[in-house]
């Protein structure tokens, strides 16, 4: 556990046209805790992830990752600094095999601008992708095209892609979205394991899932931080209940 905070979100605003999707949010996250960001639809959670990972630039404010200002860094540079991310709509490389998917993510750490090397001979990436296949239980499917995988396996693969980049921080955007109870359990277990080695921030809708695994819960509503605390503190927070119950709007 270092003194440098994992992530510092400093008075960040993101506006689209006249609408502030994030409105002056300031959050500091420490390393070593599993953080969760929850909130009703339209609270700005995914936009926050977008801003942190560089997919969007904030309209104002700063983001620091392990002490380093990454506010306007391009997405790939932020990934190279050790941040990995999954998306709400599972995003992998459909026409490549599972192994090829993992391979390229692993190779990204060693550089791809090697036009004369033979990809199949590169040990580090080969070993990493094989190891990840094992770890995720995808070895049987290693040569299957990602497009042919079941939804749950695609989700696993996407986490695998993130892990292949040896991240220090893993951002998971609604990791159990669209899963049945069994798959959800499996995935939650996986996340719990991962969180022992890597810092994890999860966006989630489902309070149950969060209360089981997260030590630090941040509740967002209308682009701002509404409340923050442990699962006990949050479940007893009146503002949070109002935000959720008083908000029937489906985005």
């Amino acid at each position: 556990m270092t003194a440098i905070p994992l992530l510092e979100i400093d008075d960040v605003t993101k506006s689209f046209g006249g609408l502030n999707a994030i409105d002056g949010a300031s959050i500091t996250l420490a390393s070593g805790t599993l953080h969760a960001i929850i909130g009703p639809n339209g609270a700005g959670k995914t936009t926050l992830f977008n801003v942190i990972s560089g997919t969007l630039n904030p309209t104002s404010g700063h983001i620091k990752f392990l002490g380093r200002d990454i506010t306007n860094e391009p997405v790939h540079r932020i990934s190279q600094l050790g941040m990995a991310r999954t998306l709400q709509i599972k995003s992998v490389f459909p026409n490549l095999s599972v192994r090829e998917n993992l391979w390229i993510a692993a190779q990204s750490r060693h550089g791809v601008f090697k036009p004369f090397a033979r990809a199949r001979n590169l040990r580090p990436a080969n070993e990493k992708s094989d190891a990840l296949c094992e770890e995720l239980g995808l070895t049987d499917l290693a040569n299957q095209k990602a497009a042919n995988l079941s939804y749950g396996d695609v989700a696993l693969l996407e986490i695998g892609l993130a892990l292949a980049t040896d991240p220090k921080l893993l951002l998971l955007d609604e990791p159990v979205c669209g899963m049945g109870p069994a798959e959800t359990e499996q995935t939650v277990e996986k996340i719990r394991e991962l969180a022992k080695k890597i810092d994890v921030i999860i966006i989630e809708h489902d309070m149950e899932v969060i209360f089981n695994i997260a030590d630090d819960i941040i509740v967002m509503a209308q682009g701002r931080v509404l409340a923050r605390g442990t699962s006990d503190e949050i479940s007893n927070n009146a503002d949070v209940r109002v935000a959720y119950l008083g908000d029937d709007l489906d985005d």
Binding site: V75, H76, S79, A84, S91, E100, I104, A105, L161, A162
Partner: peptide, 21 residues
């Protein structure tokens, strides 16, 4: 080569490609 594989990833899903660095 790795570059050739990178070509394919960019074609398949350029957002994902940039997210993996």
């Amino acid at each position: 080569s790795p570059l050739g594989r990178a070509f394919a990833t960019v074609r398949e899903n350029d957002l994902r490609a940039t997210l993996i660095g």
